[in-house]
Design a protein around this nucleic acid. Structure first.
Length: 587
RNA sequence: GACCCCAUAGCUCAGCAGGAUAGAGCAACAGCCUUCUAAGCUGUGGGUCGCAGGUUCGAAUCCUGCUGGGGUCGCCA
């Protein structure tokens, strides 16, 4: 139950009834009416801007309109008091029974508390990672992976039908370079001394095993073939090897995609395959032409070759310049493939698409959105979330990255050092469009400075309280069902009330984070919740009557355990959404 | 030259689809501390929300222009 939604609906009903009595005009636009927690708890439990938002359309001043709404709200059996404040806010204080029933619901629903009902909205496709299959993942890829995965979890939890997808860039020149690099390792595996890796090839030793696999599978058979003969075969083996490695890296992060979509698969077949088809479709609508582009300004243009090329009219859809689809060697540009790829997503039923990209691809956003508009006739929606750079630190000092390629800090090294939970949590403890400092030393500290520890510890502390209770009161029934029956009117302390209010916001938080495509809000909420819970726990130090477990007051203890259980469930639920584990102890 | 992102307390960052007196952690300062299980705890001080306009009953939030930082800029992906 989302009490904010419940009251938004009730206010709408009140306005309809006022309209039917002719007190206010009919057909007011209620979309701007929001019910939210007031910033200051002394204002009550809920606040709405209804009177202010509707005043102009109703041709009344806000306070006048508020005075019409207030008596209706006051009749509500769950409302304790209503008042008008400031420029026309309507503040509601709710009866304690409302929060008691929220708490009961949280205890009963457990991990499902806050979960959205399946929504009648289009299937949504979240495409993330899509790292080139030419080497291991680095830390920047990891941020995109965690963000995309958490966003997909969040949307699914909010009730959307979500598909997680990975686009394999296996069609460009870079995979031919990969194949040549692997071929060198193959010769090495056959016993040849290959010396230093030539400039322009991938030097990383992660290709050694690919070379060995080729040697084991083909012996010396490929060695003296012309490149044109061995390249496709070696390329496939190398790509498969790289994708296996990437999948292992992703698995270490707990990231699993449902669909792996190959770029190459778009280009096969006659007439240029799916890419050719997509371009033909655009051509039929007059969106393709042969023309020249001006050279980019402020760039060295020595290599600029002014030539006529095949261009897509992306400027008709808000882009800055039209974009080329064919390379000078006659192949398709990456953009051309990407048009066909997004058309494929739409054709597969995804009217809503979300792409997660690194910030270095920011310049590509407009043209892709232009292409999606063109290729779906305006029916497909594409949101592109850019994740900014990750600066790797250790004790406040930047971690030096070697310039020699193949010797950078890999995602796997970081996961192995600090653990999956720390990586996932910290990658989400910042907005996606802000750069992120990731301190390898800080994230493993057992201290309040370390949010990962702080939140997980709150969960462990909940579990610990139950262990304590079992010892103090053996035989007590602390099942979820029993706790949901507890006498919650005994929870009267302000700190307890504050915690319950925070719990009641969880369903709303999920809805809003999901519709804003901002999983970081979940991480920040969990931090707030942990803080509120730890604070209540600490109060019990000085005021023993506030402790959760009081073995001579079983009813009170039972009520407090309900609260602890609800906190535990919401922490576990939120941690689950961002893909972080919920430990029962932190030792 | 153009486009994208960022700018909020000394530092690192939140700020919830414009809403009331802008929040948290760290640091600083003051007090408390043999604990239901562990991170010690509680409190205080500290901000022209980069600058200038605009829209609005109401702007950190939306729009325009500027300043500063980062990123990108045909035939790489």
């Amino acid at each position: 139950m989302n009490i904010f939604d419940v009251f938004t609906a009730r206010i709408a009903t009140i306005l309809q009834s006022l309209a039917s009595r002719g007190v206010v005009p009919a057909g007011l636009d209620l979309s701007r009416v929001v019910v939210e927690p007031p910033r200051d708890a002394s204002h009550g439990d809920l606040a709405t801007n209804a009177a202010m938002a509707l005043a102009r359309d109703a041709k009344m001043n806000p306070r006048q309109l508020a005075e019409l709404i207030v008596p209706e709200l006051a009749k509500d059996s769950e409302v304790a008091s209503v008042s008008v404040a400031g420029p026309g806010f309507i503040n509601l204080a709710l009866k304690p029974s409302v929060f008691e029933s929220v708490l009961r619901e949280a205890v009963r629903a457990g991990a499902d508390f806050g979960k959205g009902a399946p929504q009648a909205l289009p299937k949504v496709n979240v495409e993330y990672v899509s790292a080139n299959p030419t080497g291991p993942m680095h830390v920047g890829h990891g941020r995109g992976a965690v963000f995309g995965d958490a966003l997909a979890n969040l949307l699914a939890f909010a009730g959307r039908d979500v598909t997680r997808e990975y686009y394999i860039n296996d069609a460009g020149a870079q995979v031919d370079v990969l194949a040549r690099s692997a071929f060198l390792r193959y010769r090495e595996a056959l016993g040849e001394d290959i010396g230093p890796i030539p400039e322009g090839l991938y030097p990383g030793d992660y290709l050694v095993s690919v070379g060995q696999a080729l040697a084991a599978g083909h012996g010396a058979a490929l060695r003296h073939q012309p490149e044109a003969d061995w390249l496709p075969l070696v390329r496939n083996v190398a790509i498969d090897g790289m994708m296996a490695m990437i999948r292992e890296d992703l698995a270490a992060l707990g990231v699993v995609h449902k669909v792996f979509f190959s770029e190459r698969s778009l280009q096969g077949g006659g007439n240029g395959g799916a890419v050719g088809e997509a371009i033909e479709g655009l051509k039929a609508r007059g969106l393709i032409y042969e023309g020249r582009l001006p050279p980019p300004k402020g760039q060295k243009d020595e290599d600029w070759e002014d030539r006529v090329q095949t261009l897509f009219r992306s400027t008709e859809f808000g882009d800055d310049v039209d974009r080329p689809l064919m390379k000078s060697d006659g192949g398709y540009t990456y953009f051309a493939s990407d048009i066909a790829y997004h058309k494929s997503k739409f054709d597969r039923g995804f009217a809503e698409m979300i792409d997660i990209w690194g910030a270095d691809h920011g310049g590509y956003v407009k043209r892709m959105q232009a292409a999606v508009k063109a290729v779906t006739g305006g029916k497909g929606a594409l949101d592109i979330k850019l994740v900014q750079l990750v600066k790797l630190m250790r004790d406040g000092e930047p971690v030096k990255m070697s310039k020699r390629s193949g010797d950078f800090v890999t995602l796997r090294e970081v996961i192995d050092e600090v653990g999956r939970d720390a990586v996932r949590f910290m990658m989400l403890f910042r907005k996606n469009d802000a750069t992120l400092e990731f301190d390898l030393a800080k994230v493993v500290e057992q201290s309040k400075d370390n949010p990962v520890f702080y939140v997980q510890y709150a969960h462990a502390r909940c579990a610990s309280i139950f262990r304590q209770a079992a010892e103090a009161m053996p035989g007590a029934d602390v099942s979820a069902r029993a706790l949901a029956e507890a006498d919650l009117t005994l929870l009267t302390d302000d700190s307890e009330a504050a915690l319950i209010r925070l719990l009641a916001q969880y369903p709303r938080l999920i809805e809003q984070a999901a519709s804003a495509h901002e999983p970081h809000r979940v991480a920040f909420y969990l931090y707030d919740l942990a803080q509120s819970f730890h604070s209540l726990w600490n109060k019990g130090r000085d005021e023993p009557q506030l402790r959760f477990v009081n073995h001579n007051q079983p009813e009170l203890t039972q009520a407090r355990l309900s609260l602890v259980q609800a906190v535990r469930c919401v922490l576990a639920s939120g941690l689950g959404v961002i893909g972080v584990s919920s430990p029962a102890e932190m030792r």
